[in-house]
């Protein structure tokens, strides 16, 4: 599925069945982002499908 990383403004193709796996594969620390699927907030154990649009939004405030 396509995963959007807000902080760096890039799309990545990731093979994963849930959010946890996305974190592992992209080496992202779960405490630093919130995750949305089709613009709905989801938890880490949520199962995801190949056609879902997943976004990782940074929680770190800049400045």
């Amino acid at each position: 599925m396509k995963v959007y990383i807000e902080r760096t403004d890039e799309w990545k193709e990731v093979n994963a069945i849930n959010v946890q796996e996305i974190f592992q594969k992209l080496k992202i620390n779960p405490t630093t982002v919130i995750v949305t699927r089709n613009n709905e907030l989801i938890t880490e154990n949520t199962k995801i499908n190949d056609n879902d649009e997943v976004k990782l939004i940074s929680v770190i405030s800049g400045g």
Binding site: I34, L41, V59
Partner: peptide
């Protein structure tokens, strides 16, 4: 409250 909780709240409230 953690940054993650605050961001979640802001998102759910549409303040993003």
């Amino acid at each position: 409250l953690t940054e993650k909780e605050i961001t979640s709240y802001a998102f759910l409230k549409g303040f993003m």
